[in-house]
Design a protein around this nucleic acid. Sequence first.
DNA 1: TTGAAAGCGCTAACAG
DNA 2: CTGTTAGCGCTTTCAA
Lengths: 351, 351
Amino acid sequence: VRERKHRRPTINNIADVAGVSRGTVDRALNNRPGVNQRLAEKIRRIACDLGYAPNRAAKALRFNYEPQTIGVILPAANEFFDDVVRGIKRAEEELHGMGVHAQIETIDESDESAVVNTMMRLSEETEASGLVMTGPDTSKIRTAINSIADTGIPVVTINSDISAEKRLCFVGQDLRKSGLVAAELLAKLVPTPGTVVAVTGDLNFQAHRDRIVGFQEGMEKWGKHLKVAVGEGYDSYQGTLRCVNDAFSSAAHSGTEVVGVYMATGSIDGCLEAVNNLTAGNRPRIVTNDILPAVEAGLADGRIDFTIFQDPEYQGYMPMKVIYEYLLTKRMPESHWFQSPIRILGAADLE
Amino acid sequence: VRERKHRRPTINNIADVAGVSRGTVDRALNNRPGVNQRLAEKIRRIACDLGYAPNRAAKALRFNYEPQTIGVILPAANEFFDDVVRGIKRAEEELHGMGVHAQIETIDESDESAVVNTMMRLSEETEASGLVMTGPDTSKIRTAINSIADTGIPVVTINSDISAEKRLCFVGQDLRKSGLVAAELLAKLVPTPGTVVAVTGDLNFQAHRDRIVGFQEGMEKWGKHLKVAVGEGYDSYQGTLRCVNDAFSSAAHSGTEVVGVYMATGSIDGCLEAVNNLTAGNRPRIVTNDILPAVEAGLADGRIDFTIFQDPEYQGYMPMKVIYEYLLTKRMPESHWFQSPIRILGAADLE
DNA sequence: TTGAAAGCGCTAACAG
DNA sequence: CTGTTAGCGCTTTCAA
């Protein structure tokens, strides 16, 4: 005779109490059609009274009846997304043997119709039960997401959001905050007055703008002693080199010195090269984003002071978990936006 | 007829191929006694060839046969551990309906025999299937851990390690690295020569020493322009006040100025008070540890620049997951030491 | 509208 | 040493 200690109520218990069969309880609790309204009500009340919560293991086991595929659409050949994929793999590992696996498709993310085609292929041909994706926020793609979501397939956008109102949620960075943190750090690293240069790629991109906005906001808060100059390097070595050069010379013209550089995005190499050429005495403090080989090298040899890191693995791991949870429970996730944590990393973290 | 797409091999498939029953396959794969050596070998080979991995949902479901209790032993009335408990609850939530739950016991952690008694009570009376605990690293407690581990009950130590070789693993901070990160940050925040004061509680405690060691190491790397003074505040307001006072006056005597303070542990209030009294012009840069109300207030109003944060929730969440995984698979965790991530937080993170 | 039964993959108890 | 069976909790048929 096994004791009942700590055993949580099951649909069987509810069925017993209500004097009906398990099947009816299941139908009532999951709002399935074909059950007497008043009976359903009664069953739900009993479930509530008993403190019933469904057993996840049992639900998961049933998945094996018809294993579930989660389709993933990512840009091809991108360092950042290699780490995202690592996060997806880690989630898959954890969900291993829970009847769920990922099918990753890489595409040219700027190619709108390639994105839509892949979405369709995954949802129709592969019969994916969920979609994790990134891509441009265009109306064609928004429509595709909404119509797929209407089919009942949860869609999670990652990295850069797509404003389709029917997507389940977005997993990505708070770019404004990332800029804010960078500003506080840089402002405190540079106690003396002077100019700080914020280098970005192209201010026509929302993502690039957001970081700069946050940075400027932060500078108003913590960097009152500093002047901010913003430059666009268009993500190329030459462009970045030129823009940093320009910033230095116009600072010199206005009689101040460049004491700090924030590399919001773009070619780290170009920036470091320019700084190297231009500074004779005191090197400006440099804060970058992410961890690329050039950043790691810069941190190690002291040319870069700190980098603002956004866990890319999180952007792979989290969406998988969210979709799995949704498939299991059919409940909306707690948040529309899961923010990948912002971390300040220095040379000490490279160990 | 359901298609076989993506369905992973089960023990049934293995049984079919090997021409034996599921029971035998189960015994062979789990190294249970009572199965012909050569047959077991053959079965394992087939499993490997088929790429078999056990279905976690099915294993988890079986747990409900005899629900599992994980015993947790924590110090009573401690701000830090409130967050640890939050992590435990989160894990419990995730494991909800997986046949696992936590039973938390709070004790006076300095009371060796109270710790041992609670351990025994949890393992014998409650029949816990796993133990998460913290306590002093004494031989009596080490022996208790080892003997409980010998029973087959996994024991995970958290926060401060207990060097019982049979514990499953330790989940906690890398204190040396925490000091190292603080040093890099403080050194870079203070470009001008001067003295930095590292305030700790009591250097007789290993934990307190470790942070200071890391800090000194980091100062040698990144703070060559700075002199380091170490003070013990014995975790009291008065002690900290006095020790910071002393550090300031002896710095003044040797003709340097205190330009930075590292509060490795102890009374933040005492430190802030002392600094406030002593500095007329430039306030020294201050780096603290953890997030206590006093730290939050200090960050918000600018008296503290940054704090080195060690996610306490992680120290609750992770051990639960590790033990669950162990109960499920009976495999040792990947690491003996799960390090809670070290994060630098500033005012920007309070938002 | 409801009940009964089968089965997801695995393990433990019981037979042989 | 090996096979058989029941059952963990839930959902989905099929039958009533």
